[in-house]
């Protein structure tokens, strides 16, 4: 116990002299950066997809709390062996019961109309997005593959939106295979 206190004081003194007490080795930086980048490469969670995920999360959470949409952070982080999706949400204020109920009701109504025609709601969603054309392309892709596994859906949607002109590239379509392996090995 006493040793810990001394060590802390020692470190603080070192810190005062501008010396980094815990110098991270450059190779550790490399390993951590690579972990993230490989993870993204393997899942094909492109910035556009992440943006979309962010948008949908905001929509969902806004029903219950008023949040600072600009400051919301969504990132992948490594926690030991596990990859984690870290979501940091600055809450402006909690909504009261009436507001939540109103939001849920509105949502329900939306849901009912969704039952009547799936595509209409999908389209109205698109209109609210900033980059309409991009989103439209993605939605179009995803609709046709909705029955498939989620992983494949994300992969192909993003690939195609990037390489709309190149069709039927064999390596693209079979990529999810690899990810299956990586996951199962872990």
């Amino acid at each position: 116990m006493a040793e810990n206190i001394f060590a802390e004081i020692y470190n603080k003194i070192l810190g005062l002299f501008g010396q980094a007490t815990q110098k991270e080795d450059s190779k550790d930086v490399a390993v951590n950066r690579l972990r993230l980048v490989l993870m993204q490469d393997r899942t094909n969670l492109t910035p556009e997809i992440m943006q979309r995920m962010r948008k949908e999360l905001i929509e969902l959470l806004s029903k219950y709390v008023e949040l600072d949409k600009e400051a919301l952070e969504l990132n992948f982080e490594q926690e030991g062996e596990q990859m984690a999706l870290m979501l940091s949400i600055p809450v402006v204020r909690a909504k009261d019961e009436a507001e939540i109920e109103a939001a849920l009701k509105e949502d329900e109504e939306k849901g009912n109309s969704e039952d009547e025609s799936d595509e209409e709601t999908e389209n109205s969603e698109e209109e609210t997005s900033e980059d309409e054309s991009q989103e439209a392309a993605e939605n179009g892709e995803e609709k046709s593959e909705e029955q498939n596994e989620e992983e494949i859906e994300i992969t192909e949607g993003s690939e195609q939106s990037q390489e709309e002109n190149e069709e039927d590239k064999p390596e693209e379509s079979s990529e999810p295979k690899k990810r299956g392996r990586k996951k199962s090995e872990e």
């Binding site: 490399a30 690579l34 490989l38 490469d41 064999p170 990529e175 990810r179």
Partner: peptide, 17 residues
């Protein structure tokens, strides 16, 4: 090196396919 490792990962994905 980072770039070589990343590219190797991509190649492994393509080989598995």
């Amino acid at each position: 090196e980072m770039s070589a490792v990343r590219d190797a990962d991509r190649i492994i994905g393509l080989l598995e396919a």
